[in-house]
Amino acid sequence: MKALTQLARYTLMIFVALIALIPILWMVFGSFRSHQEIFEYATSLNIHLIIPVEWTLQNYVDVIMDERNPIFQFIGNTLFIAVTVTVLVLFFNSMAAFAFAKLNFPFKNVLFICLMSAMIIPGEVTLVPNYLLMNDLGWVDDYKALIFPSLVNVFGIFLLRQFFEEIPKDMMEAARIDGASWFRIYWSIVLPLAVPALITLGIITFLANWDSYFWPLIVLNDDSKQMIQVALANFSSLAGTEWAKILAANTISTLPILIGFLFVQKYYIQGISTSGMK
């Protein structure tokens, strides 16, 4: 009976894994195919649906050697922005989340509703006013326009507050009595306990910036400064979509993230189970 439930469990797990994996397998294997092959076999059940008939590295050569679209430069630009934003987001938003979770201060509820509102308003409608603001600040075509407006992460404040609330208040009060400053309590008691949450938020913020397309498209004019997703969009034109190159370029830009995640998730899972919140 037990063996049977185990079997059922693993079958389910593998089934879900297949559903999760098929598109990425199609992408990675597809990147080793010629354009002409990609959709030839895309519509029937056979082995070549996923596995290339004729393997080729040409797509990678095309994408990497393309002088007009230096993919590694775009990846570098994006990496710079994503890391900068992630570090700053973690710092400022965890501070705010700490205050919301553990401190009483005037206008707390008002501010919280304001934050909620900022999360609810569709970005499409603030795009033009935001662009005007960037224009007035002289930040058009400047990385500041990508960094500063991304620093408020309402979702992050929500998530972290959630975690911080679990931390017993008496622990902090004891520290207060021992003369610790609020900043020290935040820095050396609360943050270490919330490492898993910080990593979750870090991953999400990083991914969001890695995927950001619309805002960089609007505020950056100099193509050498552009972000990776905007560069990828340039593989489509009126004439058609260069699928083979898109798949290769996407594989190049996704694999490092996946490997990074594999690495971080180990730490992340450990973090959860050893954080030992009481």
Binding site: Y131, L217, I218, A233, S236
Partner: peptide
Amino acid sequence: TPIPFGDYETKLRTALAAGN
């Protein structure tokens, strides 16, 4: 500045709206 085909007009119109 070459701009991705699908969103070219969005960018152009935003810039026109901002007078830039």
